[in-house]
Amino acid sequence: MKSIYAAVALGLGTVVLGGCSEKPAETQEAASPLSATDGKLFLPAVEGNPAAVYFNLKNDSDRAIAVRRADVEGAARAELHDYMEYDDTEMGSIGMVTIEPGDTVKFEPGKKHVMAYDLSPDLKPESVTSVTLTMAGGDTMSFDVDVLPADAER
């Protein structure tokens, strides 16, 4: 009688384990609702100063998207910045950039941009690095930017 139970258990185990050997359905990473173009990182003119990163960011979705953080490969830290008007025009860190559906926000000189601090010496002109943006809710998107010398045309 024990041999019958053993045979049944062995048979069921084979069926169950056989199901585990099937390849899982492939998962496709969801496309980002944002797209970035024209990415450029301008190295600082004075070593030790931060770099400036510019790009165009388009919201291809039907809802507003808030970008709350930027990270730059090869920089110890990065911040979203904008020029603000007080008594004089000042540049400062901003907490978030909201992009309305269908809109494009330009990160450009004299306006919104990303400041990249404590740069790696590996960041050289004519190379490429990556920027990762984190949106409210935690989703991220990454894109490449060209690394340019400080005196390159902006």
Results as ranks from 00 to 15, higher is better:
2 K>Y: 09
3 S>P: 01
4 I>T: 12
8 V>H: 02
11 G>C: 14
11 G>E: 01
12 L>H: 07
13 G>S: 14
16 V>R: 05
17 L>S: 14
17 L>K: 03
19 G>L: 13
20 C>D: 03
20 C>M: 10
20 C>G: 07
21 S>T: 11
22 E>W: 13
22 E>K: 11
23 K>G: 03
24 P>A: 11
25 A>Y: 09
27 T>W: 06
29 E>N: 11
30 A>E: 13
31 A>M: 14
32 S>D: 10
32 S>K: 05
34 L>F: 01
34 L>I: 06
35 S>Y: 04
39 G>K: 05
40 K>F: 00
41 L>F: 05
43 L>K: 00
43 L>M: 14
44 P>Y: 00
49 N>F: 08
49 N>M: 11
49 N>K: 08
53 V>R: 01
54 Y>E: 05
55 F>E: 06
55 F>W: 07
55 F>L: 07
58 K>R: 13
59 N>Y: 07
60 D>F: 01
61 S>T: 11
61 S>L: 08
62 D>P: 03
63 R>Q: 13
63 R>V: 12
66 A>W: 00
67 V>F: 02
67 V>G: 02
68 R>W: 03
69 R>A: 15
74 G>W: 07
74 G>Y: 07
76 A>C: 02
78 A>M: 02
79 E>F: 06
80 L>D: 09
80 L>E: 06
81 H>T: 09
87 D>N: 14
87 D>H: 11
88 D>Y: 10
91 M>S: 12
92 G>Y: 02
92 G>A: 08
93 S>H: 10
94 I>F: 10
95 G>F: 11
95 G>W: 09
96 M>I: 11
97 V>L: 05
97 V>E: 02
102 G>K: 04
102 G>S: 08
103 D>F: 13
104 T>W: 01
105 V>R: 10
106 K>Y: 11
106 K>W: 02
107 F>I: 00
108 E>T: 09
109 P>C: 06
110 G>K: 09
112 K>L: 15
112 K>I: 13
114 V>K: 00
114 V>T: 04
115 M>A: 15
115 M>T: 08
116 A>E: 01
118 D>K: 12
118 D>C: 01
119 L>D: 01
119 L>K: 06
120 S>D: 14
121 P>Y: 02
122 D>Q: 11
122 D>V: 04
123 L>K: 04
123 L>I: 02
123 L>R: 03
125 P>H: 01
126 E>F: 10
127 S>M: 10
129 T>L: 05
129 T>I: 04
130 S>Q: 13
130 S>N: 13
131 V>N: 07
131 V>R: 00
131 V>Y: 01
134 T>W: 04
134 T>Y: 03
136 A>C: 02
136 A>E: 14
137 G>E: 08
137 G>C: 12
138 G>D: 06
138 G>T: 08
138 G>M: 07
140 T>S: 11
142 S>G: 15
143 F>T: 07
144 D>S: 15
151 D>S: 13
152 A>E: 11
153 E>D: 13
153 E>R: 09
